[in-house]
Design a protein around this nucleic acid. Structure first.
Lengths: 331, 331
DNA sequence: TTTGAAAATGGAAGCGCTTCCAGATTAATT
DNA sequence: AATTAATCTGGAAGCGCTTCCATTTTCAAA
């Protein structure tokens, strides 16, 4: 039951192994039509598929990029993945892996073992220094889709999170809101911190700060669970740090017969697919996710081809998308 | 810039290659404490990670399973992927790939080339016969997450789609609806066909058939676009073949100020995460997606271990989940 | 000491493939 | 017919690793 190997093909076609290899790799101009025919025929008869392990062993392996995301179920990452996959050149292989903080190390290890030549992380790395050392030692470039302290230490893809948060605040202020709640996930990425910072900064220019800051899990259920506190706070608006949670908040408010936006304005972040389908449609901040995924991939490919180029940062602007879930304060 | 290989470690530790190999694979009981120490030290110093290509070459490779889905963005598949990933034994490697009908062939090929030992398809295979021959010839078992004509030709995971459709019809009928629309995606899987069949079958026992059958794209936007026709049909209820589309329908109806369920009842299918967060919450049919993913994976692993066992079919029941989007007919 | 088994280690083959190089065959040119 | 050049093909090394087996070293018991 052994897999058919190049040897089998060679024997069947009655030519040398070398001939088979070259002919099947289109480097066989130097062979006669007849030989080529025999080889192709034998391959098809035997159903031969070259073993890429053996092939890669030789050196010029295909480029393999590992992409590590926290979850496949979050729209943001689903989009990233899809966009990378759609934009990957044919000779590049992408391997997607989900990973919790716990098994990050082993995930990275298995990717490296598999011959990944570069990695892209969808979220911050907990033990950054350690991982950095591990990868640097092996000359494996990587890239983190999150703000990063050291712009000169590696390539980066950034979005203007601070501005994003700020836009939200301005929008709500301009609608007359003064009592604004802030709903955060219990684990913040750097991106989210910036988002928050921008929001708080702009509020403070009006001498305001959030009426309440609610911390909850990063999920629709988390948003739902935050509603109780939100109502207690008597705010007239809330900035929910991402759309997933915002969807939960919308749902929770509806259960309490609190009308959005008449009684309460809600703003999300990410502009996932679902935002424009909510009832009411969700005001949110758009990040060009597809572009981000594409840029990250291209950047890391560029790095592979030119390991010594200076580090680069791709910068993306965000945009406030005003929809139905925000409105002027009720008087 | 060559990657450090076992040879480098051996030299550095001043032992043989064989010793390094065995020690690092925990088959080194026969070595002295001292030697083991040296080797581990050398490995760490050099940052050595064994090359799995070379390792697999030898034969007993790690089990690699390829999973092909149409899209990473559809909640149904995101869930499947997540559940497989969460349930995969440590020694099993999963590779997820998105694929359109067009590049299916090459996707399969690249997976086989990589040494995939089994495949799982998330959706029907267009040119089934051809693919079947290709994979059979290479002794690569596969499994399709869709109903399948030939229960004796391969393992299968099935859900009771017919019953699912039937449950929807019964539910709507019991609420008094007689004018019921059916909204389909323009490409049906076998599963969906069964779903439809169950629905139509039950309707017909009341001598009914859908007031209208609307065909649209399989997406939220598709659902939204179907609303116009739906309204024209003067139906009092609609069965939308999956939640994604149903979300679009809900949104579209809201735009037209048509109240759900007072003016129109809506039923989806899949019970994705979002169903219970819609406003109104969406009545839908629950498939145990996580279980399905897990079962599919286990089944294919079992097949790998025991290629000659008789084919098996895992069968899952579905459940109607009644929520706010359906209600008694208005009189 | 001698002896023999147990413990420790390295040599070398081989996994499937690519690639360099030399050898063989054929065709083209005097 | 002789020589050269062009065309065609196979041998063999080597990629990084595992594994079988032979060899060497150690150590306790005789």
């Amino acid at each position: 039951m052994r897999k058919t190997s190049i040897k089998d093909v060679a024997k069947k076609a009655d030519v040398s192994i070398a001939a088979v290899s070259q002919i099947l790799n289109n480097k066989g101009q130097r062979f006669s039509k007849h030989t080529i025919e025999k080889v192709l025929q034998a391959r098809d008869d035997l159903g031969y598929v070259p073993n890429s392990a053996a092939r890669n062993l030789k050196g010029t392996s295909n480029r393999l990029i590992g992409i590590i995301v926290p979850s496949f179920r979050m729209p943001f990452f689903a989009d990233i993945i899809q966009s990378m996959q759609d934009n990957a050149p044919a000779d590049v292989n992408l391997v997607f892996l989900g990973s919790t903080d716990d098994n990050l190390q082993s995930t990275i290890y298995s990717l490296v073992e598999r011959g990944a030549q570069a990695l892209i992380f969808g979220k911050p790395i907990p033990n950054r220094a350690e991982v950095n050392e591990f990868l640097k030692k092996r000359h494996i470039p990587y890239l983190v889709l999150d703000q990063n302290a050291d712009i000169n230490a590696q390539d980066m893809v950034q979005t203007n999170e601070f501005t994003g948060g700020s836009l939200v605040a301005s929008h709500l202020l301009s609608l007359g809101h003064r009592k604004i709640a802030l709903i955060l996930p219990n684990k913040l990425t750097d991106n989210m911190r910036q988002r928050r910072a921008g929001f708080l900064d702009t509020l403070s220019t009006s001498n305001l700060s959030p009426t309440t800051i609610i911390t909850t899990t990063l999920s629709k259920h988390g948003g739902l669970a935050a509603v109780h506190q939100l109502i207690q706070s008597e705010s007239t608006a809330a900035f929910v740090l991402n759309d997933e949670m915002a969807i939960g908040v919308l749902r929770g408010l509806a259960y309490q017969n609190i009308n959005v936006p008449a009684d309460m304005s809600i703003v999300g972040y990410d502009d996932t697919d679902y935002a424009e389908f909510m009832i009411p449609t969700l005001t949110t901040v758009m990040q060009p996710v597809l572009e981000i995924g594409k840029a990250a991939l291209n950047m890391i490919l560029r790095r592979l081809d030119h390991p010594n180029l200076p580090f680069q940062t791709a910068f993306f602007d965000v945009k406030l998308v005003v929809r139905e879930s925000t409105g002027p304060i009720k008087r």
